[in-house]
Nucleic acid binder design. Structure first.
Length: 283
DNA sequence: AGCCAGGCCCAAC
DNA sequence: GTTGGGCATGGC
């Protein structure tokens, strides 16, 4: 069934899906997007302020898609506050207006960003897609195409490197097996409870997993655990920090401090506008 | 062909 | 505690 909601503001699906925070949404010929999240397949389109989601229900919209798209939060206010911080941020917001930080599934985000390391976005998407098709639960069919969810930690914990070879994950395959075993050891309870932890504790837990360092951990904190102040620093953010804020590319500590001082509790959201801006306008 | 990609691990200082 | 080499794979 199809649901419609009007008066949706400060949302741009292209910016939200293409800013590098998620990997499983694809644009259709008609401009709508189809993707899988939380085990559901939906097709979504926004025309003016009218949001239409196909293949869902009123109940699922309330329980899954409102939190997923972060629709209860006032991004107009957030953008206003960040834009007042400085001129670069202001330009980045003009460019990426409507970008919202999705609240994604923790396990899927964890695996996705382990795969993301030293990798490019196109290939990250292919790796994730293959992993889901080969080992994920069937999530449904939309317009003749079948979709599969991210395989659970129980499934991945029982695979071998040979099983994963077909996914072409490279050296990351072992990280995924090790992390799946660690998460499955307590039935995923620690991972699920991270949202209620302090950011510091959640970060420490993530860093204890295999293939998760500071950058990947901060992405997971921001994109799935509601830790808005988390400021992931990758090669692109280093370039932003160097080009626009005159911080040396190796000085991560100074970048972190700068983010806290300048962007405060919305550091991660600011980071995402900057990432999207610099990637779309490289040098 | 060689460099790069939303970095991390581990050994050597 | 910090630094640097190595790392699978494929797009450009």
């Amino acid at each position: 069934m199809k649901i419609v909601r009007e008066k949706i503001t400060d949302l741009d699906l292209e910016h939200t899906f293409d800013c590098g925070q998620c990997f499983r949404w694809n644009r259709e010929a008609d401009g709508s997007y189809t993707g899988v999240a939380f085990g559901r397949v939906i097709n979504i389109v926004l025309k003016e302020d009218k949001l239409t989601i196909d293949h869902t229900t009123d109940e699922e919209f309330d329980q899954i898609w409102i939190p997923y798209f972060d629709l209860t939060r006032d991004y107009g206010k957030i953008m206003g506050e960040l834009a007042a911080a400085d001129e670069t941020m202001k330009e980045a917001i003009v460019y990426g207006r409507g970008l919202r930080i999705l609240q994604q599934d923790k396990w899927e985000t964890l695996i996705s960003f382990i795969i993301s390391q030293n990798n490019n976005i196109l290939r990250i998407k292919k790796c994730i897609e293959t992993l889901c098709e080969n080992f994920g639960a069937y999530a449904g069919e939309y317009h003749g195409k079948k979709y599969y969810a991210m395989p659970s930690f129980d499934v991945l914990a029982n695979l071998t490197l040979e099983d994963l070879a077909s996914c072409k994950l490279g050296y990351r395959a072992n990280y995924i097996l090790e992390t799946a075993k660690l998460v499955a050891a307590d039935g995923g309870r620690t991972l699920e409870s991270t949202g209620a932890m302090t950011t510091e504790d959640a970060l420490a837990y993530l860093l204890s997993l295999s293939g998760v360092g500071p950058k990947v951990a901060n992405c997971i904190l921001l994109f799935s655990m509601g830790k808005d102040e988390s400021f992931p620093i990758d090669v692109w953010i280093k370039r932003v920090m160097n080009r626009f804020y005159q911080i040396e590319e190796k000085d991560m500590k100074k970048m972190q401090d700068f983010a806290v001082e300048t962007f405060g509790v919305y550091g991660g959201i600011a980071q995402q506008y900057l990432f999207y801006y610099i990637r779309s306008n490289p040098c």
